[in-house]
Design a protein around this nucleic acid. Structure first.
Lengths: 160, 160
DNA sequence: TAGGTTTTTGCAATTTTTTTGCAGAAATCC
DNA sequence: GGATTTCTGCAAAAAAATTGCAAAAACCTA
């Protein structure tokens, strides 16, 4: 489990920083990182991570991360989210506001990761996010203001 | 060109209303609609539409649309789209508002489908949408209000 | 609208990539 | 220390992508 989790992390990292077009390719990247596994296992990992195979601008295929999400089945109340230790999100570059919207710029490909962290934290100040490649849009709750949003985000983006 | 365009439309429609997991499957759906083509052509179509193969809630593979409407304005207006009977959109989880924005949360991977339906319906109350993986943002027309938006959406999301 | 051009598609494999069933290993749980 | 669950390699099957060409369709344009 230890191995698998760090491998999944590695996969996320690789996919978020490189243009990977096939599992073979990803496999060899993982090997560079010291992970030894078969393509079959990788396929299962990608499935679990809900990675999608997309078509990039140049028409080349590319694996991209979607937002990992724990499913909260309707009705199923369940115990609250695992509440992972405040993950420090990287890739942050800047934040700007306009009306009830905040726009965060990140390093290329870091947007979905950052949005993931924000979503995961479920801040009451933020009612939703959408991520592109290097931009995250946040919709600010009506009962919140910019200062509150910044303060909230500080828990995962210390240097904000 | 005529045939191809309507076929691409058909593909979009099918993918937005059904969970299609393979090209074979899509192929036979298209056949039901009267489109006759080979897997090679379908592969080319999907590539052109930049359809992605994703993983749905049940863990099943699924083709999903990314940007449904860049194809719209092709100088072609003529016969307005078939205006299919109000398709019922699935995957809806919740809707929240802030200012002139509505944020809809969906089950993973359903956002673009839902956005597709909303766009397609061309509600005057909604001037645009953005979809991520499980989130759709709607920009509400200035002359509309939340009640109107909800009422409009009810035509495609009955349980809203 | 006839003739030329461009685009699309089938054919028919071939190649590449992805998925899966199964059994053994490893990890986790009482 | 067994029972149970999770993970993984192996091998093969299934699915998807690509190709080179020729024919068909659609589009121009004079």
């Amino acid at each position: 489990m230890k191995v698998k989790n760090s491998r999944l992390d590695a996969i996320r990292l690789i996919l978020s920083t490189q243009e990977i077009g096939s599992q073979e390719e990803l496999l060899s990247e993982l090997e560079k990182e010291g992970f030894k596994l078969t393509q079959a296992t990788l396929s299962r990992d990608l499935h679990q991570l809900r990675v999608v195979k997309s078509v990039g601008v140049q028409g080349r295929y590319r694996y991209i991360l979607t937002r990992p999400h724990q499913y909260r089945h309707e009705g199923e109340q369940g115990e609250a989210r695992p509440l992972t230790a405040p993950q420090e999100a990287t890739g942050f570059l800047s934040i700007k506001f306009s009306g009830n919207i905040a726009v965060i710029h990140t390093k290329p490909s870091y947007a979905s990761t950052l949005a993931y962290h924000i979503d995961n934290y479920d801040f009451p100040e933020i009612i939703g996010t959408i991520a592109g490649d290097d931009t995250v849009m946040l919709i600010i709750a009506e009962e919140a203001n910019r200062t509150m949003v910044l303060r909230a985000l500080r828990t995962i983006i210390p240097n904000i």
